[in-house]
């Protein structure tokens, strides 16, 4: 669907970020093709916000480089193509809604769509004359979204946009975002520490843990690259896995009594892990299962790294 020679929307090369000697991110390498909806997931403090700040150019990486459509974040070329909503959805409380939109209209005049911004605000039942400071959390999010979508950017960066929203507003806001994607084919990076709310939305995933990218790629490819294994634990092996199973392919395995449950990486070019036969109950895992298995198999030092990133 996308031109493979086109610049990816995002490219991170060996990104590292330090804050006063603490490592917040290290060796982050990933590429996000244009037109994708990527979920940036990971526990709180994994470095998601830091990564967003690097993508927007609000922060410069200590090491490595970030590119937005081939341009350095923060430069004019990158800025005009990027819209960002940070986690706290900051707005000027003393401004009216109309004035807040005017910030977008006047500071990002290049592609600004006033009608769209006004429609998004209006559909939320928000009067343009209302002061931002008097709005509820859901309505503030709507205004922030109107500001971001009105800019008509090609890359939309949303840091936990759905947190603190009630389910109805969450559904509404997600619908609004998806409609924008359907209309304009833009690239979206949307972060969350709760994956299920993004499972129907994203087609690409970046799993960040302890400042490192644990997993990155197309969701369908990921689901096809792993197998979920359940069954009676093999009494002859200490870990309960089939004797012939490639131990290096095991992402995470647990045994409860005689019951074994494991996630294994498939052998290259096949749809099963090597050494696993049809005696086992195998199925394609859900995205959430893959991510959870990776999070649970965190290396011992991950907890330390997570703290440093917080």
């Amino acid at each position: 669907m996308n031109d493979p020679t086109a610049e990816p929307a995002l490219r991170a090369t060996a990104i590292g970020q330090r804050f006063r000697g603490n490592r917040a991110l290290h060796d982050c390498d990933f590429e996000l093709p244009a037109g994708r909806i990527a979920a940036l997931v990971g526990p709180n403090g994994a470095g998601k916000s830091t990564l967003f700040h690097l993508m927007t150019g609000l922060l410069r990486p200590t090491t490595g480089e970030m590119r937005v459509f081939g341009a350095v974040p923060g430069t004019r070329a990158a800025r005009t193509r990027t819209a960002f909503i940070s986690q706290d959805k900051p707005l000027y409380p003393q401004f009216t809604v109309a004035e807040m939109l005017a910030v977008g209209r006047r500071l990002s005049p290049r592609h600004w769509d006033q009608a769209k911004a006004e429609r998004i605000v209006g559909e939320g039942g928000i009067s343009p004359k209302t002061r931002i400071g008097t709005l509820s959390g859901g309505k503030r999010t709507r205004v922030a979204l109107a500001l971001a979508l009105g800019k008509q950017a090609d890359l939309l960066l949303l840091d936990e946009p759905l947190a603190d929203l009630d389910p109805l507003v969450r559904h509404e806001v997600t619908g609004l975002l998806m409609a924008e994607v359907a209309d304009r084919g833009i690239t979206v990076v949307i972060s969350s520490h709760v994956l299920p709310e993004l499972e129907n939305v994203c087609d690409h995933v970046l799993l960040l843990q302890g400042g490192r990218i644990r997993l990155a790629g197309d969701t369908q490819d990921l689901r096809e690259a792993y197998t979920r294994l359940t069954g009676r634990a093999d009494p002859d092996t200490p870990d309960g896995l089939p004797p012939g199973a490639d131990r290096a392919a095991v992402v995470h395995a647990t045994t409860t009594g005689r019951h074994l449950s494991a996630l294994l990486r498939n052998a290259p070019g096949t749809s099963l892990p090597s050494g696993v036969d049809e005696h086992w109950i195998t199925r394609a895992p859900s995205l959430e299962e893959i991510l959870l298995a990776h999070l649970r198999s965190a290396p011992r030092n991950a907890a330390h790294a997570t703290e440093a990133a917080a």
Partner: peptide, 11 residues
């Protein structure tokens, strides 16, 4: 207030 993040990500 974090509003600098809104302003500096405009054109």
């Amino acid at each position: 207030s974090g509003t600098i993040k809104v302003v500096l990500t405009q054109d």
